[in-house]
Structures are given as C-alpha cells and as structure tokens.
Simulated scan of single mutants.
Amino acid sequence: MKTLYSSEISWENEIVKFGIGLFETMAFRNNNILFLDEHINRLTKSSLELKIGENHIESATRQLKKSTKTLNKTKAIRLTLSNSGYAIEERDIPYDISHYKRGFKLWVYPYKRGENPYYRYKTTSYMENYYARNTAKSKGFDDAVFIDYENHILECSSSNIIFRKDNTFILPSFSKPILKGIAVTKVIEELNKDFKIIEKNIPMNDIKVMDEAYVCNSLLGIMPVSSIESKDFSFDFSLSIKINNKIFQI
C-alpha cells in the first residue's frame, strides 16, 4: 500500500493505542473516485455520531481529491480518519475476470457475533474482521461469513452478502449489527430493475434452499459465491459482469 498523504501519527495516538478511528475504502476508476459523495457522507455521519475526527472531514475531503488527481490507473483508495488527522493510501485492486468466473468460496466464522452497535460503523477496530478473513484464507477460502447468536447470517469480513431464490434477491436484515455498504446499495438499485428485492433474517439453514449467493463491496462490485463451506452454488457470472459494468461505469 502506498501512502499519498498522512498526518503525523505518534504511539500516543488513540488510533494506534485503541483503534479509535474510521475509514472508507473506495474504487478509483476512469479517473474518478466512484461514489465519492456517498463515502464521504457515511464517513461524516459516523464521525459526528462517534465524535471521531469531525474537525478533519473537510480538509480530508479536499486532500483526497488533490492526492488522486495524478492517478491514471484503477486503484483502491483508503481514507483513514482519527482525532489527530488522517491518511490517504492507494493500492492495486487484486480482482480480475478469473475471480468472477470461479466465484468466491466462503467459510463460516465459528464465533457468534453479538448486538454491538459499532458493527454498523466502518471503524479501525478491525481485529475480528482481519482475523476471520486471514483464517478463512489460510483454510483455502476467500472470505469469512459472520452469524449471530440466533444463527442468522449477517455479512462477510469485508463485504455484504446477498442470496437469490427464484426471482427474488434476499438480503440479511439491516436491523442486525451489519455495516450497510455503499456498493450493495448500488447493486440493489440495478437488481431491482429485473428482480424482486427483500430484506429479512436469514437462518443459516436456509442456505440449503438458496439458488445463488453473491458478495458486494466497493472494490468487487457484486461477486458470485461458488460455495459456503459444503454448500455449492451454481451461477452465471455474466450477471455480475452486467451489474458491475453499470455501477463501475465501464
């Protein structure tokens, strides 16, 4: 990851000591940060509600636009915000057409998630997500799925999850402790043109009757899921390509 701009951070900083910070990960494509307003609005809302870095939002937004002016390739951009300042970084997006053709394999994280409201914010207190994702990868999976104490499916470590049954796409209820991603909102808008969309609690056992599954985030767009542990899904990756072409303005 390459740093484009950073305030000076010391070991005394809250973001270093306690993970008290916020961040947004955005896609830079076609000389443009996709869904910039939506990302900044979410960051601003979280900043004001949690009292983290609210004095730096305006300057961080200006610096973000300035720092990405010279980029000419598709990149992932991360803006991290703390009470002492902010940092802007860029890195390559590792996904290509081969990932969409084979789909993601998901592992079910064995530790149940509680009702902590902070799961609805994109904070730098990211140890659980980091550990779950790395453990999934060490086992040969692409990502981990979180479930709650009622065995309802929530989300993945870095993405939202969507299921399809017949002509209906089903999302886990956002009344649960879930971060509602920017990308999933855009994907739903596109899917809603041809399919029915519902939001409800999804018990883990219900995956047995689902026809397809997908994960969504701002770098992936919508990615097919080939399996959740022993449950295999068939899929037509062309739906993902069609939706992604729309939301990524390709």
Rank of each mutant, 00 (worst) to 15 (best):
residue 56 H to T: 03
residue 234 S to K: 14
residue 249 Q to G: 01
residue 227 S to D: 01
residue 87 A to D: 11
residue 98 S to A: 12
residue 4 L to D: 04
residue 117 P to I: 15
residue 250 I to V: 12
residue 180 K to F: 00
residue 12 E to Y: 11
residue 66 K to I: 14
residue 20 I to T: 07
residue 40 I to S: 10
residue 56 H to N: 13
residue 23 F to T: 11
residue 103 G to V: 08
residue 125 S to C: 09
residue 166 D to N: 14
residue 129 N to Y: 04
residue 241 I to F: 08
residue 137 K to N: 13
residue 3 T to Y: 07
residue 2 K to Q: 11
residue 171 L to Q: 05
residue 213 A to S: 10
residue 69 K to V: 03
residue 159 S to G: 04
residue 81 L to H: 09
residue 153 I to S: 03
residue 230 S to P: 13
residue 112 K to G: 00
residue 86 Y to P: 04
residue 46 S to E: 10
residue 162 I to E: 00
residue 149 Y to D: 08
residue 29 R to Q: 08
residue 52 I to E: 04
residue 245 N to G: 15
residue 164 R to M: 09
residue 246 K to R: 14
residue 74 T to F: 02
residue 155 E to P: 08
residue 57 I to M: 10
residue 239 L to C: 02
residue 248 F to P: 09
residue 109 Y to R: 09
residue 42 R to A: 05
residue 84 S to A: 10
residue 88 I to F: 03
residue 77 I to D: 03
residue 116 N to S: 15
residue 28 F to H: 08
residue 218 S to D: 14
residue 162 I to W: 02
residue 229 E to R: 04
residue 93 I to F: 01
residue 184 V to F: 03
residue 53 G to M: 07
residue 226 S to G: 11
residue 196 K to Q: 13
residue 43 L to P: 07
residue 48 L to W: 00
residue 143 D to G: 09
residue 221 G to S: 09
residue 24 E to Q: 07
residue 147 I to Y: 05
residue 15 I to Y: 02
residue 220 L to H: 05
residue 180 K to E: 12
residue 50 L to P: 12
residue 213 A to P: 03
residue 34 L to Q: 10
residue 13 N to S: 15
residue 195 F to G: 04
residue 11 W to C: 13
residue 194 D to Q: 13
residue 142 D to E: 11
residue 25 T to I: 01
residue 209 V to M: 07
residue 199 E to L: 01
residue 164 R to E: 04
residue 41 N to K: 15
residue 190 E to A: 06
residue 168 T to L: 04
residue 175 S to T: 13
residue 166 D to V: 05
residue 110 P to A: 11
residue 196 K to R: 11
residue 159 S to T: 06
residue 176 K to R: 14
residue 181 G to Y: 07
residue 163 F to V: 01
residue 146 F to N: 06
residue 249 Q to R: 14
residue 42 R to W: 02
residue 75 K to D: 08
residue 123 T to G: 07
residue 191 L to G: 04
residue 129 N to F: 03
residue 135 T to C: 02
residue 153 I to H: 05
residue 127 M to S: 13
residue 18 F to N: 13
residue 46 S to D: 12
residue 120 R to P: 00
residue 148 D to C: 02
residue 67 S to N: 05
residue 18 F to A: 08
residue 133 R to L: 15
residue 104 F to E: 04
residue 167 N to Y: 01
residue 194 D to M: 01
residue 43 L to Y: 08
residue 165 K to R: 12
residue 238 S to T: 15
residue 52 I to F: 06
residue 139 K to T: 01
residue 21 G to W: 00
residue 57 I to N: 07
residue 223 M to D: 07
residue 132 A to S: 10
residue 96 D to T: 12
residue 24 E to L: 01
residue 82 S to I: 05
residue 49 E to D: 13
residue 66 K to L: 14
residue 232 D to C: 06
residue 173 S to A: 09
residue 33 I to P: 00
residue 61 T to N: 14
residue 222 I to K: 11
residue 10 S to D: 14
